[in-house]
Computed example of a mutant assay.
Amino acid sequence: MSFRANSIAKIEDGAFRNLTKLERLFLNGNRITTIEDNTFKDLANLNTLKIYDNPYHCNCELIGLVDFLKSGRVTVSGDPRCFTPGNLNGTSLVSLSAANLTCPDMTTIPTTISGTESDNTIDTTTEFVKTTYETNSSPLKGGNFLVIAYVSLCSLVKTMIEF
């Protein structure tokens, strides 16, 4: 299936969901900057993929794609390369590692949790901002509860609530 040179900027999640017999997919020559982790997941018969000549923004959102390309599950025709950020411009996607694919400085996002912000630290191993809130108004047990929110600008949000 060829979508070559169609000015495609985004591939919606699930766009190829029911195309299980698809063997060749050409997305080269478009305006795609990122491809979601599970975009090609359901394409069990995919053997050739052309995704070069797109302006990829190489950050943490491309980790899944890079892993997929390195898996050897499909033949990648051409050489897809980073366009941005500037320090990765021209770098082949298959030569990248997770360490290269970082996201911008992390920040907290305003929340509606009422309580006292007791901790706000940056976890340098994961590059997430860790914000801890304590409150004495748990809607489930009537006792104290702790909310720890990990937030990044790459829309990766993990929230853990302990009761």
Rank of each mutant, 00 (worst) to 15 (best):
P80A: 07
P80S: 09
R81P: 01
R81K: 06
R81W: 00
R81D: 00
C82Q: 03
C82W: 01
C82E: 00
F83L: 01
T84N: 15
T84Q: 15
G86H: 04
G86F: 03
G86V: 00
N87T: 07
N87I: 02
L88W: 13
L88H: 14
N89A: 14
G90V: 00
T91V: 10
S92P: 02
S92A: 06
L93Y: 09
V94D: 14
S95H: 10
S97T: 10
S97Q: 07
A98F: 03
A99D: 15
A99N: 13
N100S: 06
N100F: 06
L101I: 01
T102A: 05
C103N: 11
D105T: 10
M106L: 00
M106W: 05
T107W: 09
T107E: 11
T108D: 15
T108L: 13
T108G: 14
I109C: 07
P110C: 09
P110W: 10
P110T: 03
T112K: 10
I113G: 00
S114I: 03
S114P: 02
G115C: 09
G115A: 08
N120Q: 00
N120D: 00
T121L: 12
T121M: 11
I122R: 12
I122L: 13
I122M: 10
I122S: 10
T126M: 05
T126P: 01
T126R: 04
E127I: 05
F128R: 00
V129T: 05
K130Y: 10
K130Q: 11
K130N: 11
T131W: 07
T131K: 15
T131N: 13
E134F: 00
E134Y: 02
N136A: 14
S138F: 04
P139S: 12
